[in-house]
């Protein structure tokens, strides 16, 4: 299945923009979101991190309309795009080997949806897809033998990502502490993928999107770990030579220390 990215995406964004502007005019309430941290640093003892996303719902400046709920909030957190392959093993000539595969180009390395209620109760599936609150909607291109296979493999992709903690739908993760103040907790696992993350908060009232707001945060290795992964990527030859010298030195040291 080939989905021409630009052909599909640009009109969609246009539609969303018009829709958002229209909504703004009709409902003078806005979202003021915040995040506990804008940069998550991975060092040698990194075992995961808790990120708190919170915010308030306020009236627009100059508007005398009362801010009245009940509101629904959906927060979509996604990592930078990577190319992935999902492979399926099958038995051939008696042994199990990777036989069929589907390639997902530009798939988010991390995809979590946090919401105040199950998302299907907040809005219809078609609208959610249109807003991008769906993994498939965020993938640029899917290459597979047939549409039936790609749909099945997309579900497997979600399941496999869920197993390592990079995909999730948490339907009661956003809680309201007052009618206009909400917060949500996002647990980033120890092996959270590096990169730029985008957290988009959607505000709904009675099934209508009132406002949305996006913010970036970064997950990156720092210090020694950053230096190591950067040099492995940028100076692979020097990196390899250093590895060998280190091994020679360790071996020599071991030989000398124990006088074998």
């Amino acid at each position: 299945m080939q989905v021409p990215f630009a052909k599909f995406f640009i009109p969609l964004m246009g539609a969303i923009l018009i829709f958002t502007l229209w909504v703004h005019a009709s409902l003078a309430q806005k979202l003021v979101p915040k995040m506990s941290e804008l940069e998550i640093s991975i060092n040698s003892t990194f075992t995961g991190e808790n990120l708190t996303l919170f915010g308030t719902i306020e009236a627009h400046i100059g508007s005398d309309e009362k801010v009245e709920g009940p509101f629904d909030v959906i927060i979509l957190v996604q990592g930078s795009a990577v190319d992935r392959v999902v492979r399926e093993k099958s038995r051939q000539a008696g042994i199990w080997l990777n036989a069929q595969q589907v390639t997902f180009k530009g798939a988010p390395s991390y995809f979590h949806v946090l919401s105040s209620r199950p998302i299907e109760d907040i809005n219809s599936a078609e609208n959610l897809v249109e807003l991008g609150i769906d993994l498939t909607a965020q993938i640029h291109e899917i290459e597979g033998p047939s549409e039936q296979v790609t749909i099945a493999y997309t579900n497997e992709l979600k399941r496999l990502m869920q197993e390592v903690g990079t995909y999730g739908l948490s339907s009661h993760a956003v809680s309201f502490h007052s009618p206009t103040f909400y917060s949500a907790n996002l647990e980033l696992p120890a092996d959270v993928p590096n990169g730029t993350y985008l957290a988009t908060t959607f505000l709904f009232k009675d099934g209508t999107l009132i406002d949305r707001s996006a913010a970036r945060f970064f997950v990156r290795t720092i210090g020694m770990e950053e230096f190591i992964s950067d040099s492995a990527r940028d100076f692979p030859l020097a990196y390899g030579i250093v590895c060998v010298l280190l091994a020679l030195f360790t071996g020599w040291l071991g030989g000398v220390a124990f006088r074998r």
Binding site: S80, V82, D83, R84, V85, V86, R87, E88, K89, S90, W96, N98, T103, S109, Y153, E156, L157, R159, L160, M161, P193, N194, G195, T221, S229, A232, R233
Partner: peptide
Amino acid sequence: DPFSITAITLGAG
């Protein structure tokens, strides 16, 4: 689990 997932991008991201 017959299914497995691999990132195509080489090296650290």
